[in-house]
Amino acid sequence: MKGQHWVRLLPLALLIVLGLAGLRGTVGTPRWDGPLHRDGIAVGLVLEVVFAVLAVLTLRRQRSAQQGLVVRKLRMTLLSVLSVGAVAVAVVMLLSLKLHFLNRPVKLPPQPPPRPGATPTRRPPVKAPAPLFHIPVAVLLYALLVLALLAAIAASIWWARRLRPSVGPREDAFIVEDSGDLREAVESGRSALRTVDDARAAIIACYLAMERSLADRGTARGLADTPDELLSRARARGVVRGTAAARLTALFYEARFSSHPLGPGQRDAAEQALDELAAALAEEKAEPEAAGAGT
């Protein structure tokens, strides 16, 4: 979970770094003159990057998540705003370049060569005609950049709140967090059977061991899963074969959800099921290893 938090914060951190870099004009400082000066292009490019990153993130989330209608509408609105922003920045940049070329200094006629003997007189420099109108491009781009950064921060906070694990369960959360070795899990079930006097507790421990071993094999129980659903999933994935797991699950249900007195017969049945399961899982594990050694 901690790793996921870092992943969520990464785009925000990246955007802030890019934004600061753009504001300082340190990203690839082009050195040409004109109304764009040096950092107009840099700020524009940073804005485009920011818009692109936000758009990609939004699109990825839209594809992966199954959200409600309101969230989807918000995402569509955000995408539209980002698209319009990206186009607007591009247009402003192109327009500025165009104006820059339109407002080039007028070429002066070639001056006659100075006559010999004549003392050169200093002429006042001919000024280029003032541009027809002036657009504060840098100011506009800076304002857009600040707006984009604010929007990015707001969006990140919104996402973080939405993705924060709620009080309720999550589908991708698993009950079995520790995934020890398969043998260790089964052995813990056996030791529970040997050491725990209470048949009910022993059967539950046995089932718990099976659940851990299934988690080790890549079939962990989701928070909203029932033991039978877990078993079906394990069967569908080919992790479980035979009837041992089903018998152990049925015994677990009885031990866990009834107050019947459970006798040694049920305890023995649980032990036998666990043994069969361990043997089957070990056999299954050995098969690919043997195949690997043979090749």
């Binding site: 999550r170 589908e171 539950i204 718990l208 129980r221 899963d225 033991p227 677990f252």
Partner: peptide
């Protein structure tokens, strides 16, 4: 909704991780 509501834990003695 049913796919998002937690079922009772495996081990009643363990409140959180079953």
């Amino acid at each position: 909704l049913l796919a998002s509501v937690a079922t009772p834990r495996t081990d009643p003695a363990r409140a959180v991780t079953g």
